[in-house]
């Protein structure tokens, strides 16, 4: 039989399977059941989100935005946020890519070791990891104490309350997302492809550049977007590990809320952060499916 005929069969089968898809229009059972759930999300999440936007423009007015953007501290934190997010994304990529590659292309023991390390870190909450880095990095912390005991240094190394510490902490927290995103894609590349390239005389570096890198690019892109967007919202880690100049937008918002002199101001800041995230995602959506990125975020947590 011709392909067209089997196509018809498939279409009819799909229709046939639909004890639910076919049938009369109007409200169906699942819509009826799902509508209250939708309403709960709209009320419990949509309304709060709407209030942020609404208050930012009405309490007392759009002057919130001019005030916020006129505030040098906020402006600085905005640029710092982007700067740190970019730096953390790059660091996560540089460290995470080889990690994902080795995890996908090595024996059972190595893979298990890397996977366990990844999961242990993933499953420890961000707050606790922040605390741990504090324990490790502070002047009386593990690293400085050990180095002093070994006689390598006299005065503690300046490895806390600065951008370095903030970046170390954030990179360690964000790299796992990137690793998982890239790992999923490298696993999908048949190893034979690499063997074939090497068999045809390509050097390892050439093979990597012409085979693995292009094929894993979607994972890299998804991972980077995810990490960058998450980094934009970070503030507790840079606040605890960084110095006064590592002030993120999130911190400004949280402080503005706690002070609560002008809620509209905090809301305006929140909207600006939201816009920033939205811009990144909208730009991404032009060349990849957002749901793919979000799935990566969910498989992790």
């Amino acid at each position: 039989m011709s392909g067209r005929d089997s196509g018809v069969a498939e279409v009819t089968d799909l229709a046939a399977v639909g004890i639910r898809r076919a049938g009369r229009p109007g409200i169906d059972f699942w819509t009826l059941l799902g509508t209250p759930a939708m309403l709960v999300v709209l009320v419990a999440f949509g309304v709060p989100l709407f209030m942020v936007v609404y208050k930012s423009a009405t309490d007392p007015g759009l002057v919130n935005y001019t005030d916020v953007m006129g505030d040098p501290v906020f402006r600085k934190s905005l640029f710092k946020t982007i700067e740190i997010a970019v730096a953390a994304t790059l660091a996560a990529l540089l460290l995470g890519y080889p990690y994902a590659y080795v995890m996908a292309r090595s024996g059972r023991w190595m893979r298990s070791f890397l996977l366990v390390a990844l999961m242990v870190s993933f499953w420890t909450s961000l707050l606790i990891r922040t605390f741990a880095w504090q324990v490790l990095l502070q002047n009386t912390g593990v690293i400085n104490t050990e180095l002093k005991r070994l006689g390598l240094i006299d005065t503690p190394l300046p490895i806390i309350r600065n951008e370095f510490a903030a970046l170390v902490g954030m990179t360690q927290m964000l790299a796992p997302f990137l690793i998982l995103a890239v790992y999923a894609l490298i696993r999908a590349i048949p190893p034979e492809l690499e063997q074939a390239a090497m068999g045809m005389g390509a050097r390892r570096s050439t093979m990597f550049r012409t085979v693995v890198l292009p094929l894993s690019m979607p994972g890299v892109a998804a991972g980077c977007v995810l990490v960058f967007v998450l980094a934009l919202g970070f503030y507790i880690t840079p606040q605890v590990l960084g110095g006064p100049s590592e002030r993120m937008v999130g911190q400004s918002i949280a402080e503005a809320v706690h002070a609560f002199v002008r809620p509209g101001l905090a809301c305006a800041m929140a909207v600006i952060l939201l816009l920033l995230v939205g811009l990144v995602l909208a730009a991404t959506a032009r060349f990849m499916r957002l749901s793919d990125i979000l799935k990566m975020g969910s498989m992790s947590e």
Binding site: M1, D5, V8, A9, T12, D13, A16, V17, I19
Partner: peptide
Amino acid sequence: GPSGSGKTTLLRMIAGFV
């Protein structure tokens, strides 16, 4: 009958799915 001949749809009509 071959695929696309309607045999499965007829069976599913007897079952009541279609």
